[in-house]
Lab assay of single mutants.
Amino acid sequence: MAAGGDHGSPDSYRSPLASRYASPEMCFVFSDRYKFRTWRQLWLWLAEAEQTLGLPITDEQIQEMKSNLENIDFKMAAEEEKRLRHDVMAHVHTFGHCCPKAAGIIHLGATSCYVGDNTDLIILRNALDLLLPKLARVISRLADFAKERASLPTLGFTHFQPAQLTTVGKRCCLWIQDLCMDLQNLKRVRDDLRFRGVKGTTGTQASFLQLFEGDDHKVEQLDKMVTEKAGFKRAFIITGQTYTRKVDIEVLSVLASLGASVHKICTDIRLLANLKEMEEPFEKQQIGSSAMPYKRNPMRSERCCSLARHLMTLVMDPLQTASVQWFERTLDDSANRRICLAEAFLTADTILNTLQNISEGLVVYPKVIERRIRQELPFMATENIIMAMVKAGGSRQDCHEKIRVLSQQAASVVKQEGGDNDLIERIQVDAYFSPIHSQLDHLLDPSSFTGRASQQVQRFLEEEVYPLLKPYESVMKVKAELCL
């Protein structure tokens, strides 16, 4: 049975990233139509530049190519590739079939990587351009969430054990800070992308030097003109047959890092959902379990974690691919890159769409948070109580021993009897502590235990987050809708 299948058929496997999760716009960027249309555009740009620099290419040939950029006979191309065992030459023939007058000058002087690699770089750039505003929107939604809850005390956790208090907004800023680093890295790697350009079979530009009869300047002009037509500021000066596969490492490393950030955020949300302090959106008709109707599973956060793990592992592909590119190139890269580049971007696209949807509907339960604080705060307040007693004339050592005994009794009630923490009640009825009984409410005010959390939130948002989001103001209103 021949390899390949009808990918629109229910009898043929289709990647869930495309069929179930990723956005239509990201799927289109990695589609065959987008790819092969870009090949034709690159052939047109090459012909236009070659004509401008004096090669015998007519206006009629150029116009014929322009008129057929979208006229792609995919069936013919597939048949040609089956016959020739070469995808680029299959599309040269297919393009030439609908451009008979231009057929002889299509791909003039070029090698397969002229269309293959340059198209990949265009796709990487455009895919990054799709991700950047999506990530900015996630940051914006979380920034709104953090600002609104900047002063809401909550129990902090280290080692997932109760620690000092923080605020809900401050905790959210930990998430935002990681995503801001990801946004900066995505922008950097996007701006650092260079075009492969017009380089020939081993990167020496020998074929173009021959076409222009040894004119170095025209060869350099050709490279520059096509690079500018493709919208790049610069091209690699040095290439082998391909652009260095280190570029793929750079791009997928940034995406993998984004995956790590999203995994951490969504894990926190899942843990908070278990504590009943916070939940992701839950639709009115949504079913959490087929057997347990009360369940409210954090399905979206779980999906993000599941896909983020996949995204983090994909960076190993370009690392290994770059390491086995012998001399000017081997074909070890080809099949692998067809999979890992598309999957990385479709996965990143999915987790950003999902995280935006989550961040637009996060639900906080202040009463649950308050109750958990009441359970733990008495123990945390013991040092403040000791200091207040010393100020009232008591002995630190005597007070410490009193607190120690009462704390152990209260802990026994919590752990052995399943009761509430009654340390404060014990202190309130103990005559030894009568000098500070009137101060206990103040000493137990949760806001006095959150330090500068709310001020940190305000400063972080104003100095770091809002300036970073400013270039994306025009796209901030787009909502994230999930079908599944």
Rank of each mutant, 00 (worst) to 15 (best):
D6H: 08
H7V: 07
G8N: 14
Y21S: 14
R33Y: 03
R37L: 13
Q41H: 09
L46T: 11
A49K: 07
T52Y: 12
P56N: 01
P56V: 11
I62T: 04
Q63M: 13
M65A: 01
E81C: 06
E81K: 01
V88M: 00
H93R: 05
F95Q: 05
I106P: 03
H107K: 01
V115D: 03
G116A: 05
N126T: 06
P133Q: 08
V138P: 03
T154L: 05
L155F: 06
T158K: 15
A163W: 03
G169S: 07
L179Q: 09
L186K: 05
F195V: 03
G197R: 05
G197Y: 01
K199E: 00
E213G: 10
D215L: 07
D216R: 06
V219R: 13
V219C: 07
E220R: 04
D223T: 09
T227W: 05
G231Y: 11
R234Q: 00
R245K: 04
I249N: 12
I249L: 12
E250N: 12
E250M: 07
L255W: 12
A260C: 01
A260V: 02
I265Y: 10
D268Y: 02
I269H: 00
A273K: 06
L275H: 15
K284V: 04
Q285A: 14
G288D: 13
S290D: 07
M292A: 15
M299H: 08
C305D: 11
S306L: 10
H310G: 06
V315P: 06
D317Q: 09
S323E: 09
F327Y: 07
E328D: 09
R329D: 04
R329A: 08
R329Q: 12
L331F: 14
D332W: 15
D333G: 14
I339Q: 15
A344D: 07
L346W: 12
A348V: 08
N353V: 05
T354P: 09
G361W: 08
V364F: 00
I369A: 12
R374K: 02
P378T: 11
T382A: 11
I385T: 15
A392Q: 04
G393A: 02
D398P: 09
Q409G: 06
Q409I: 02
A410W: 14
S412E: 07
V413R: 00
E417K: 10
G418R: 10
I424K: 14
S447F: 00
F460W: 08
F460N: 05
K477A: 13
